[in-house]
Simulated assay, not measured.
Amino acid sequence: MIINNLTRQNHLHQVNQIFKEANSATIISPYITKNIELINFKELVCLRKVTIVTTLKPFDKDQYSKIHFFKELYGIFNSLKVEFEIFIDNFFHGKIFIGEYADNSASAIITSANFTDSGLRINNEWGILIKDAIEIDKIKNGIIDKIKFKCFNEHKIDECLAKIMETPIPVIEKNPIKLNLSLLFEERENYLGIKTNATFWLKPIGVSNDLIPLSAKFDEVDSNLHFSKLKPNGVKEGDVLICYAVGHLNILSIYRVNSELRNTGNENDRWPHYFVGENLTPNYGREWASQNVTVTNQKNYFLENNLLNITPSGINSFGSLMRGADKLKLTNEFGNYLLNKILKIDAELEKV
Rank of each mutant, 00 (worst) to 15 (best):
T331H: 12
L241I: 02
L225G: 00
I345A: 11
L44E: 12
I254S: 05
C46L: 01
D219F: 03
D158A: 14
F19G: 06
P232H: 10
K178N: 09
N180T: 04
N40V: 02
Q14Y: 04
I251D: 00
E220L: 01
V50F: 06
D222T: 06
L308K: 13
N23C: 04
V50Q: 06
F92P: 07
S118I: 02
N35M: 02
L192D: 06
N263L: 08
I157D: 15
A22F: 13
I315K: 15
N90T: 01
L202N: 02
A162Q: 14
F275L: 04
L214G: 07
A347R: 15
L252Q: 10
E100N: 05
E135Y: 11
P312E: 07
T331A: 08
G99Y: 12
N180H: 10
N4I: 04
G94Q: 14
K178V: 09
D145R: 13
V207Y: 01
G324Q: 06
A347K: 07
V276F: 07
D89W: 00
L202M: 12
S112Q: 07
Y244H: 06
S65K: 15
C243M: 13
L252P: 10
N35H: 04
I147L: 02
L129G: 03
D103L: 14
S320A: 12
N123K: 13
V50L: 05
K299S: 12
N336A: 08
H68M: 03
F334T: 09
Y337G: 05
I39P: 06
L80M: 15
T116D: 10
V240A: 02
N268T: 09
K229Q: 15
I122M: 09
L38P: 05
I342A: 02
V235S: 09
Y74G: 09
N104P: 01
K299Y: 05
G314E: 03
I109S: 01
Q291P: 01
F92Q: 08
I110E: 08
D103E: 08
L211S: 07
D103S: 00
N340P: 03
I139W: 14
K344N: 13
N209H: 11
G94E: 11
